[in-house]
Simulated assay, not measured.
Amino acid sequence: MTRTARPLALTVAAALALSACGNTPLGSQLDEGGFGNPTMNNILYHSGELQYAEVLSERFAREVPTTINFAFNSATLDEEARAVLRQQAAFIRHFPEVRFSVYGHTDLVGSRAYNHRLGLRRARAAVDFLVSQGIDRSRLEALVSFGESQPLVATEAEERRNRRTVTEVSGFVATNPLVLDGRYAQIVYRSYTTGGGGGGGS
């Protein structure tokens, strides 16, 4: 192929490839509905935020019970659930730079729409109790998931272990001075003792 013919051949090949796409916008096959997420996660990873949030999440799960359970068709907190939430609140108070999410789940009994409402009521009940323990509501988010999608026990019968909320670290408070300075390690590796009443953090 001559030197002048090569660019022409490449242009024709590119035109054919584009015409084969029809009316599909270029790059649309790459967008799965969260087009900016890879870039955002990349930034969070390189700043350390994503990595340290994961480390703190693992620490939270290791040091504090993250799950409470509910009676059938109920969003009422029993004494066992309140005791667990008090432990969670002590940990959360100790890390005022951190945000948390509470996920509500149901078992497989009932309609999807009803379980959606019930799961959200459970998450909100847990968040309300944490707020009553001195946690700023702006650091907590009540979310919902379905027993249908994330059961611990695969059964269509009533199952207490599926009727739960799970509390997780979701990130850092963007306006906190330590976060603004990128001093995530100072937050994550702060000493914490469960017997000290939770402390106020520093």
Rank of each mutant, 00 (worst) to 15 (best):
D78V: 01
Q51F: 14
R82A: 02
E141L: 15
V98E: 01
A53T: 06
Y189K: 09
I43R: 06
I135G: 11
L108N: 13
D181T: 07
F146I: 13
N73F: 04
R121A: 11
A9I: 00
L50Y: 09
E32T: 12
T193P: 10
S202H: 05
A9R: 15
F72N: 03
D107A: 07
Q88N: 11
G171T: 01
G104N: 07
V64A: 08
H105F: 13
F70E: 05
R139G: 12
A75R: 04
V153S: 14
P25E: 02
G195S: 01
T165I: 05
R137V: 02
P7R: 07
S101C: 13
N37Q: 14
R112C: 04
Q51N: 11
A174Y: 15
A157L: 13
G22E: 03
L178A: 08
A142F: 13
D107V: 12
L77F: 06
H105N: 05
V188P: 08
A90W: 15
Q88P: 12
R161F: 09
E168P: 15
H46D: 01
T2H: 14
S145Y: 11
Q150E: 14
L118V: 10
N69Y: 14
E49R: 00
A185M: 03
Y184V: 03
S47T: 14
V153W: 09
N23E: 08
S138T: 08
G33K: 00
H116W: 11
Y192K: 06
A75F: 02
T66N: 04
R160K: 04
G33F: 07
R163H: 09
A9K: 12
A157T: 02
L143I: 04
G27R: 00
I187S: 05
V98I: 03
R139D: 05
A17E: 01
G110P: 08
S202G: 09
V12D: 00
T175N: 03
N23V: 10
E148D: 05
N176T: 00
S101A: 14
R86P: 12
Q150F: 13
P96Y: 10
R112M: 13
T39M: 06
G200W: 13
S202L: 04
L8R: 15
I43L: 04
A123V: 04
Y184E: 06
T39I: 12
F129D: 06
R112E: 02
L130E: 11
V109K: 08
L118C: 01
L10R: 15
V12P: 06
S149I: 07
Y189M: 07
L130D: 04
A17N: 00
N23S: 10
E80R: 15
E159P: 01
R62Y: 14
P38K: 08
R112N: 06
S132R: 13
L143T: 08
D31H: 01
E156M: 09
H94E: 10
